[in-house]
Amino acid sequence: MVRKTITILSQLALIHVFYFAGVGLAHILSLPVPGSIVGLVLLLLSLFAGIVKLEWIEKAGGWLLAELLLFFVPSAVGILNYKEILNWQGLETLLLILVSTFIVMAATGFTAERLYRRKRKGEHHS
């Protein structure tokens, strides 16, 4: 238990190194991309270059991805600061987001599924 916690914490520290490097780089070069995405690219490049081994970060990375919803919770509670949207327009907004999200998912999934089937068919014929 103790060893597992230490492993996760040290791996988390390593991921933070990439995060802060990304934030710093984005700031210095005033990139239009958030630091966390720059950090993602840096980590990806380091993995491909063999500078970082997958085992060094896999446990903490798995935890971060599995608990992703937890990290959205404070922002979701932050909706409290927008009490004024709890009116008719708020309800309309909710409806807009519901309908639009449905259409977006359906359109994206439909396109991908069609292309996937066509590609698989092509592979079978060749």
Partner: peptide
């Protein structure tokens, strides 16, 4: 927890 969104985004490099 809000801060962890940053490192979590970095961690998406792993599945990629």
């Amino acid at each position: 927890w809000t801060h962890m969104l940053g490192p979590a985004t970095v961690a998406f490099a792993i599945p990629i």
